[in-house]
Computed example of a mutant assay.
Amino acid sequence: MLKIDIHTHILPSELPDFRKKFGYGGFVSLEHHKPCCARMMIDGKFFREIQDNCWDPEVRMRECAHHQVGVQVLSTIPVMFSYWAQPQDALDLSMFLNDHIADIVQRYPKRFIGLGTIPLQAPELAIRELERCMKIGLAGVQIGSHINDWNLNEPALFPVFEAAQELGAAIFVHPWDMMGKEKMNKYWLPWLVGMPAETSLAICSMIFGGIFERLPRLRVAFAHGGGSFPATFGRIEHGFRVRPDLVAVDNSESPRKYLKQFWLDSLVHDPVMLDYLVRFMGPERIALGTDYPFPLGELEPGKLIGEMPYSNDIKERLLHGSALEWLGLEKRLFA
């Protein structure tokens, strides 16, 4: 069966000295300190080590062949969003990253699909870059779970979502800059606790903010199986019912109405949870996603889906059908 992995991250092999270019710090740089490895650094401090599968499409394709993954959807590493930066600088950075992904997609159109990044701290610039992303062959954009002090229901962001619907651009929402991280300095808790909460924050903000109500054709997928949202949906729905004065202030429709209006990736690491997602959302709303090439991802892409006691029709939906629907693409493009 064709496998389309909607959640993979990539960087260029070399990054400009953005600190020197823009005149201030906070940007990622790369130190290629040994063959096939590089350190991601921020203002001289170590952030993460990556390997060549994070920048070399040939290495990625070899690893995909080993796991029978036919297509990867490429997006930048969320730390690159740089929503905190000056708007024009963030636009320049976005254009650099987007051109890199578009080039890979152009060279290997049957193996890769691209998502751009946009400077959402400046919605007008974000719309301009979104339009350019679609012109250079990308399928949409990846965005963060919040933009500085804005959640995704922020009125200033609505024109961006409106433009995405009009352009037919897919949106992939990824957690970043995790809430409460200052209280979670041990045990990798920002990634284990903060990330799932961030994704639920994003979903709830879009539901209760009326984004899905006002833009019914908007195609949005959320990372990490929706984070904590599916497991806490009963609480969320109950809160809507018993305290509409606090919850239903911008949208009077039940959150359950929108469960068929967005997608989740399958990255939950647990068969019971995956089966819950399939029952909760329907298989047509769950798409294979692995967080390749990082260790919190599914290390054998598609293995969990393959081991589930589902019919071939459901497995095909999970492995590629839902992804194609979210992306607005046809299977024949990757035959």
Rank of each mutant, 00 (worst) to 15 (best):
S13K: 10
G26P: 05
N148P: 00
A287G: 03
L15G: 00
I211W: 10
W263T: 08
N53K: 05
S254E: 15
P295M: 04
C133W: 02
A202N: 12
M80H: 07
D5T: 05
I203E: 10
K303S: 09
E131D: 12
I314N: 02
H224F: 13
R217L: 15
P301L: 07
L288F: 05
S311C: 09
E298K: 08
P119S: 08
R39P: 00
D5Q: 03
G144Y: 05
I101Y: 00
F233E: 10
H66T: 08
F27V: 07
F46E: 05
E237Y: 15
K315Q: 05
C54R: 02
F280E: 07
H146I: 01
P119Q: 08
I4C: 02
N148T: 09
K183Y: 13
F112V: 03
V278Y: 02
G282L: 08
F22H: 15
M61K: 10
F334L: 01
G209R: 15
M178K: 00
A323F: 03
F46M: 08
W150Y: 09
V141Q: 02
G70E: 11
D89R: 06
R285G: 00
E166Q: 12
G140T: 03
A170S: 09
D103H: 13
L91C: 06
I127N: 01
L246S: 14
N153A: 15
W326F: 13
K186R: 12
S94I: 07
G234R: 15
Y292T: 01
P16V: 06
D52A: 06
D56L: 02
A156I: 04
P244A: 11
D149H: 13
A163E: 08
I211G: 09
H9R: 02
K135I: 03
G234C: 14
R317Y: 03
D149E: 14
P35M: 11
F158H: 06
H100D: 04
R235Q: 13
S75V: 05
I113V: 15
R39T: 05
Y187N: 12
K45I: 06
L246E: 13
Y310L: 14
R219A: 13
W191P: 02
